Lab assay of single mutants.
Amino acid sequence: MTEYKLVVVGAGGVGKSALTIQLIQNHFVDEYDPTIEDSYRKQVVIDGETCLLDILDTAGQEEYSAMRDQYMRTGEGFLCVFAINNTKSFEDIHHYREQIKRVKDSEDVPMVLVGNKCDLPSRTVDTKQAQDLARSYGIPFIETSAKTRQGVDDAFYTLVREIRKHKEKMSKDGKKKKKKSKTKCVIM
C-alpha cells in the first residue's frame, strides 16, 4: 500500500485542523484551538488504489514558523489553505509557496490551493482571484467548507493525484537520464 505524506499549511484560523478532522473523523470542530502540530493517518481508496494518507496539520501562528522547514522537508505534497473571508490569509499563500519551493529546492512541488469556509456569506476573496492565482502557479484550486464537508475529500484526493503525477514524471525523467548515460565512448 502506497503511503502519501501530505502537509496542510496556511495562516492561523483558516480551518486547516477543521478540514483535516472532517476528512479523518467526519465531524466539524467549530471551536478554535490553535494547533502546534498534529499528525493523522487514514486509509482510503483513490482511483481504485488503496493508500495510506499521513497528514500533518501544522501551526499557522507566526511564533511556530521555525518548525516549518522541518515538516516541509518531509512532506510530499501540500494543501495551501486560505479562508475566503480573510484576504490576508490569501496573500500569505505566496509566502508559504515560496518557502516550500526553497526548502524542497524545487520549482515543481505537488500543491493544491484550497479556499476554505465557502459556506460563509462574508467572502472577501473572489473565486476568480483564487483561480487566477492557482493557474499562475500551475496547481489545482478547490473551494471547501469544513463545516458542510463540501470539497473536503476532493481537496485531499486531488493532492494525492498531483503527487502521483509528480512521481510518474520524475521516474520518466530518471529513465531518460539513465538511457543517456548508457551511451559509451570508444577510443581507438
Rank of each mutant, 00 (worst) to 15 (best):
residue 13 G to R: 05
residue 33 D to Q: 09
residue 39 S to V: 08
residue 45 V to W: 04
residue 55 I to M: 10
residue 62 E to Q: 06
residue 4 Y to A: 08
residue 46 I to V: 12
residue 64 Y to H: 14
residue 31 E to I: 07
residue 10 G to H: 00
residue 37 E to S: 07
residue 49 E to C: 03
residue 45 V to L: 10
residue 55 I to W: 07
residue 33 D to Y: 07
residue 21 I to W: 15
residue 54 D to V: 02
residue 19 L to Q: 07
residue 4 Y to I: 13
residue 60 G to K: 11
residue 30 D to T: 05
residue 12 G to I: 03
residue 13 G to Y: 03
residue 18 A to S: 10
residue 56 L to S: 14
residue 61 Q to M: 07
residue 44 V to G: 12
residue 13 G to A: 07
residue 58 T to L: 08
residue 35 T to R: 07
residue 41 R to A: 07
residue 6 L to C: 02
residue 55 I to A: 10
residue 23 L to V: 07
residue 53 L to W: 07
residue 5 K to N: 12
residue 55 I to Q: 04
residue 46 I to D: 11
residue 29 V to I: 13
residue 13 G to L: 08
residue 34 P to A: 11
residue 27 H to L: 14
residue 23 L to W: 12
residue 50 T to D: 09
residue 56 L to V: 15
residue 19 L to P: 00
residue 20 T to D: 11
residue 15 G to H: 01
residue 42 K to N: 08
residue 47 D to W: 01
residue 22 Q to V: 01
residue 25 Q to N: 04
residue 46 I to E: 03
residue 19 L to F: 10
residue 8 V to L: 07
residue 46 I to P: 03
residue 30 D to Y: 04
residue 45 V to F: 14
residue 18 A to L: 04
residue 9 V to C: 09
residue 12 G to A: 09
residue 48 G to P: 05
residue 21 I to P: 15
residue 40 Y to V: 11
residue 41 R to L: 06
residue 42 K to G: 10
residue 39 S to N: 11
residue 16 K to N: 01
residue 16 K to L: 02
residue 19 L to W: 02
residue 12 G to T: 04
residue 62 E to R: 06
residue 46 I to N: 07
residue 38 D to G: 13
residue 61 Q to F: 05
residue 32 Y to Q: 10
residue 14 V to A: 09
residue 54 D to T: 14
residue 49 E to V: 06
residue 30 D to S: 08
residue 15 G to R: 00
residue 61 Q to H: 10
residue 52 L to G: 14
residue 10 G to R: 00
residue 12 G to S: 08
residue 32 Y to D: 15
residue 10 G to W: 00
residue 19 L to S: 13
residue 19 L to N: 11
residue 52 L to F: 12
residue 49 E to P: 02
residue 26 N to Y: 06
residue 32 Y to T: 12
residue 19 L to D: 03
residue 58 T to N: 10
residue 14 V to E: 03
residue 22 Q to T: 03
residue 59 A to K: 10
residue 18 A to E: 09
residue 30 D to E: 09
residue 59 A to D: 14
residue 34 P to F: 08
residue 10 G to P: 00
residue 4 Y to R: 10
residue 32 Y to K: 10
residue 61 Q to C: 08
residue 16 K to I: 03
residue 47 D to P: 05
residue 26 N to A: 14
residue 58 T to D: 13
residue 44 V to T: 09
residue 33 D to C: 10
residue 37 E to H: 02
residue 61 Q to Y: 03
residue 50 T to Y: 03
residue 20 T to W: 07
residue 39 S to L: 04
residue 26 N to G: 10
